[in-house]
Design a protein around this nucleic acid. Structure first.
Length: 427
DNA sequence: TCTGGGGTCCTAGGACCC
DNA sequence: TCTGGGGTCCTAGGACCC
């Protein structure tokens, strides 16, 4: 057990409290004080500075329940600013990407790096990288290293938790590997979620070491092959490879809670058109077409009032990335499920049946209209303008003008890095 | 007043075929 | 009276991640 594979060396670089760190880069008054960032619609807490954690703000807490607490503890509260976080993420990722021959961007604030065969020591390399990312972007990161991705995750957690390691911890050939796994609750292992923790608890499995020592056939039967692979990774046998060029999405979702309850059909149609437009942009961004569209709507499940939720999907005869075609489909689905008299809280659009546009399946009976090329030219033009001048410079009238239903973001910081008129001023 | 959004993978079970 | 066995494909739902 715990026999590391000699040729593998994975690092997980993870930005510390990423969203809060982004806010701090451009607003020095946030240093050293409790800061939180809220989810879309200013719903719940999704990022906390260490000071916010220290005063007891929990992850995922609804913000409205804590307004008084935030005031009493002078917690600085921000709406999420994805234009800023996305841009900062790109800066960090480009530096990380250059630091290793192979890398995988795993999420907005994490990347796996393949450090096998680098000339200098792992520790030196990682410390240099950390300092470089901080100097060039202002974002602090932590790096965990191990013979498998799962162990690199654990190492990263240790690097973050204990200041004495200075942001870097290496589990490769660690003499106290078993002690560390026995110290780590199984809930903190990558890939073991709450449901599994409950199930494992009933079988007396509490720590990562308990889990790693379970028999393979038991793991396979009770935890499926992914559970088995996780256990093998804890033993030092790599099962999860780097995803070097992440394949394009197989489904695309765009959904939002409304800033206030919506009941009118007109507003529902507008919001669905807006979500389709966004999903179609993403679709074109990856050079795909979609042939399956689903629309769903729901009332607020947290409220004591008449509830309604419904969804409907349809398959198109030909895959498309043409926004008006998709809006038309989504509108007909919405009209099927919409019922007047309810206070809707949320709507969403999902696209699937996704394939590359270049090799898409055409229909024998229903060939695309010969305006196809014109549509493509129009969509390309639309995307270019919006890319250059901002996402909603050009939009379809069906998405509405006033958008009274759009999400609430009362405490958003400026788009410091992506909008000319919001650039920070010096002096 | 007010509780996020966007993905992936795996499995079981039904439909269907020979 | 008697009522197989195996394969594929699809979908819904569960579980997980950030």
């Amino acid at each position: 057990m715990n026999r590391p594979h000699p040729t593998r060396c994975y690092a997980l670089a993870d930005c510390n409290n990423f969203y809060v760190s982004c806010e701090r880069v451009f607003d020095p008054s946030l240093k050293g004080v409790p800061v939180v960032v809220l989810s879309n619609n200013d719903g719940c807490v999704i990022a906390r500075s260490p000071e916010a954690k220290a005063v007891g703000v929990q992850m995922g807490e609804p913000a409205f329940k804590r307004e008084g607490f935030f005031r009493r503890h002078s917690v600085r509260v921000f709406s999420s600013n994805y234009a800023l976080y996305g841009d900062m993420s790109q800066r960090v990722m480009s530096i990380l990407g250059e630091s290793a021959p192979r890398s995988e961007i795993y999420s907005i604030d994490e990347a796996f790096l393949d450090l096998a065969g680098l000339p200098d020591s792992t520790e030196t390399h990682c410390q240099t990288l950390r300092q470089k990312v901080f100097r060039w972007t202002g974002i602090p990161i932590s790096i965990g290293v191990g013979p498998t991705k799962t162990l690199a995750k654990i190492a990263n957690r240790i690097a973050k938790k204990y200041a004495k390691f200075d942001g870097v911890f290496d589990l490769t050939n660690h003499p106290r590997m078993n002690d560390i796994l026995a110290w780590l609750p199984v809930a903190d292992v990558w890939g073991i979620g709450r449901r599994s923790v409950n199930k494992l608890g009933r079988h007396g499995v509490k720590t990562a070491l308990d889990f790693a020592r379970l028999p393979d056939d038991w793991l396979k039967k009770k935890m499926t092959v992914t559970g088995l692979m996780t256990a093998m990774e804890l033993r030092g046998i790599p099962c999860f490879e780097l995803e070097l060029a992440p394949p394009s999405s197989k489904s695309l979702l765009c959904s939002r809670s409304f800033g206030r309850p919506v009941s009118s059909r007109t507003e529902m149609l507008e919001s669905v058109a807006a979500y389709v437009s966004r999903a179609a942009e993403k679709l074109r961004g990856q050079g795909s077409v979609a042939s399956w569209v689903k629309v769903f709507i729901l009332t607020n499940p947290h409220k004591m009032e008449l509830q309604y939720a419904n969804a409907r999907a349809m398959t198109l005869s030909v895959g498309t990335d043409h926004t008006p075609t998709l809006i038309k489909a989504a509108h007909s689905l919405l009209n099927d499920i919409y019922k007047p008299g309810y206070n809707y809280k949320k709507a969403g659009v999902m696209l699937a049946g996704i394939e590359p546009k270049a090799t898409r399946q055409l229909s024998l009976l229903n060939l695309p209209p010969n305006t196809d090329d014109r549509d493509t030219t129009l969509m390309t033009c639309l995307d270019r303008i919006n890319d250059r001048f901002g996402r909603s410079t050009l939009q379809y009238a069906a998405t509405g003008l006033g958008r009274p239903w759009s999400m609430r973001q009362l405490r958003k910081s400026p788009r410091y890095t992506t909008a000319w008129h919001e650039l920070p001023r010096v002096g």
